[in-house]
Design a protein around this nucleic acid. Structure first.
Lengths: 224, 224
DNA sequence: GGATAAATTAATTCATTGATTAATTTAAAT
DNA sequence: ATTTAAATTAATCAATGAATTAATTTATCC
């Protein structure tokens, strides 16, 4: 349908295209994102990316110049535009900590629906120490998103809205661990449990239940 | 000092060593583990590993044969021996789901204390789709650990010990996301929040509080 | 129709990587 | 003292990677 399928579709004819012949540059970004997420940025060769997209490696040089610029384009044109709105949303979403956490979880879910490669790329290239996106993402999103959340949780704690024992900053870590992390590992969980879906809706309702009351049985509290 | 420091220490003298000249093979495993965790297995070159250990790449060939065998040795001699006991412990630890979760968290904490590179290696090479340890670890640990936990949570659910809305299998995912994941991202959390430590004890008590009663405000559920 | 611009390929260059081997050095065994 | 075994280095090879360039093909503009 979109002039260019992911796999074995015959490539675009050589020569200058007539009018709008499909967004090859954008397609290359998508293919590169998938490869980067799957094998890691450093281990994903331009040859492999080009092959997966049905073009020659020279096309990547034509559209992006070099590998580093390709990575930057991916972050600038796919990652940031989708993450920035979430940051703004979370600055004022929800009243209670639980509502704020819910807004975060839903926001992440929405982004993942649009950019399925994001969770894996995040844990590979941002979370870990030698990650290639570390410095870049750090300057662009990190200063804002965790800070905003942590500050709002801290305010809630001062207002007595946060259970004792919960650390406002570590709560941000926990939230990411309960949302991005399961999404990044979706394939392995499905394989481990023989689940067909591990669909995001099921994960979402489970996570919200866990955040809501933890593992405590609401009806019969075990006496102790 | 164990005969061989991590960085710039002068290398062992050439020639056959006298008696016990330190465990170079084991040291190479440790250095390789750190490099693998930092940049990913595929992106960590044998040259870099050898350089970090103060030896020539030929030593890696001498002790392990090739890169694949090095990875297998690392898994077989460092990873599995530390993970297997945890699986056995968790088969019978704790009575309630909360206690079981606590046992898991403490077990992970203990392993991470011994193998600080494990969390990052896990998220890079096991969690994600193109991970190099995927198949190997899957055969060795995955079938048991998640299954054991999920089955025990399922039994607790049938006994009415698990809050409604909590999925026994997804709870396993949540637990990993609340323990291994924060450990893997420790550097970035510390940097994001300007925390000195993100020490495991603080993380542990926070996580256990979250698992215990979630984000429920103390006003609605105040024992005593 | 000819010139120009856009898009693509094939081929090439240079650096890096994994892997290997032939010496070399030293300790242990005989 | 001679031989053997263990450990290490330097040098090298083939394969792969990123990056580049010179053609080639096709559409558009005048």
């Amino acid at each position: 349908m979109p002039a260019r399928a992911t796999n074995k579709t015959r490539r675009r004819r050589v020569g200058r295209p007539a009018g709008d012949d499909g967004d090859l540059r954008g397609h290359l970004l998508d293919v590169a994102a998938a490869q980067f997420a799957c094998t890691g940025i450093a281990a994903a060769s331009l040859r492999t990316i080009a092959q997966a997209a049905g073009v020659t490696p020279a096309m990547l040089h034509y559209y992006f110049g070099n590998k580093d610029a390709l990575v930057r384009a991916l972050v600038g044109e796919r990652l940031l535009p989708n993450v920035r709105p979430l940051v703004e949303t979370l600055a004022s979403a929800g009243e209670t900590p639980l509502e704020l956490a819910q807004a975060f979880a839903q926001g992440v879910s929405g982004i993942v629906a649009k950019l399925p490669w994001l969770p894996a790329l995040w844990v590979r290239e941002v979370l870990c120490e030698g990650g290639a996106l570390r410095e870049f993402v750090f300057r662009e999103v990190m200063p804002s998103l965790p800070q905003v959340l942590a500050q709002r949780f801290e305010a809630a704690r001062r207002a007595g809205q946060l259970a004792p024992g919960i650390d406002p900053r570590l709560l941000v870590v926990s939230l990411v661990g309960l949302t991005l992390f399961p999404a990044a590992g979706a394939p392995i969980w499905q394989k481990a449990f023989g689940m067909p879906g591990l669909d995001m809706p099921a994960l979402m309702s489970h996570t919200l239940a866990l955040l809501g009351h933890g593992l405590a049985t609401p009806s019969t509290e075990t006496p102790r």
